[in-house]
Design a protein around this nucleic acid. Structure first.
Lengths: 192, 192
DNA sequence: CTTGTGTGAGACATCAATGTCTCACATGGG
DNA sequence: CCCATGTGAGACATTGATGTCTCACACAAG
């Protein structure tokens, strides 16, 4: 195998392993490195050649989660059109990453350290800016802070991802359930 | 020490240990039995005399969380008055248990087993019934299922509990942030 | 004072997950 | 064919948490 081919295959494998691990850890966040390897169809030795250890694997998953969120945010074009529509687009684009997000959300290990990945702050800022824009435009109420709305969005994504895994919520309803609750709430609107 | 006095003190200690453990595990869900014991001001040996092991401790915390939730639900009188007001009362009454709830919510170990504590289903049923009543009364919209609203309530409670621990949300805003978002959503209401 | 009882401290074995290593094997390129 | 490289399987030591045990001590009741 040529030198160039080596790196290409490693990169492909790495991504495949990462996504398999994400899928497994979403369901069982305490899965063993053995199980992760088995789920990816490789041996534990090879898994270790990709990721130095469990911590490195989780960090890589964190990186992947951040990247997918930022990509979803890019695709959602949060600066364009009505803020409410932008939120709906964001929820729709972020759905494929919801499972991974839910896993990372529950991995307290990532947050308890005094030093957390800067990517999360970048995301918080961008999502917070979207809610802030909605408030400036008069579309969103101002008694719920953008920080809390951002936090609530994460929480609802994680909740819905878990509920979907357990079959309590249909996968196709994911975007509607989250966006409609977050935007409109449970109260019925008065007919105009 | 008399026979009767023995049991009384044990019961008191047990409750104190349980609440210390809840407070610690809310912040660091991976805390050691050593740390739990230290946080309660007792030795690891004594901790083991109260709870046979970590699993037993977590189960006891689960029991406590369920009990506190049911007590909060009782105090909230979910059958009385407008459903929206009942939800506000429920959120207010459940706030003291929010940290414990957030810990249990993230303890996937409790959910992955095929056999989970029946208390959760009791709670789901009661809270779901509250949302269902709101729908029947025409106060709540019907395109968000009671199951999802219940799930979302849990998620928002956990999110807000963690955000409060990190100082991103003020503790005094807890009931408002959750209830207002869950009921009214982020969209600004049209002035009547 | 004597006794019973709960506790703290620590030693100890156990156990599971992890990290590291070796070696044989398959495969693809030369 | 021959070689290099990545892989799988497994052995092995290590580590950290856990469960168990013993023993001395404090303390309250008699």
């Amino acid at each position: 195998m040529s030198h160039m081919g080596y790196f290409c295959l490693m990169a492909l494998d790495r991504d495949h392993v990462l996504r398999s691990a994400a899928a497994l850890l979403t369901r069982r966040s305490t899965a063993t490195m053995d199980e992760v390897a088995k789920a990816a169809g490789i041996s534990r030795a090879t898994l270790h050649r990709h990721f130095a250890g469990r911590d490195a694997l989780v960090r890589a998953l964190e990186q992947l989660g951040i990247a997918e969120c930022e990509a979803a945010l890019d695709r959602a074009r949060p600066e364009e059109g009505p803020a409410a529509e932008a939120v709906r687009r964001l929820v729709r684009e972020i759905q494929p990453a919801a499972g991974l997000l839910a896993f990372l959300y529950g991995e307290n290990q990532l947050w308890e350290g005094d030093r957390q990945h800067e990517g999360w702050q970048r995301l918080d800022t961008r999502i917070g800016a979207l809610f802030q824009r909605g408030q400036r435009d008069g579309a969103f109420r101002i008694d719920l802070s953008p920080v809390w709305l951002t936090e609530a969005l994460y929480g609802l994504i994680a909740s819905c991802a878990w509920a979907t895994l357990d079959g309590r919520v249909a996968s196709r309803d994911f975007p509607t359930m989250i966006a409609e609750l977050l935007l409109g709430g449970a109260l019925r609107r008065e007919e105009p």
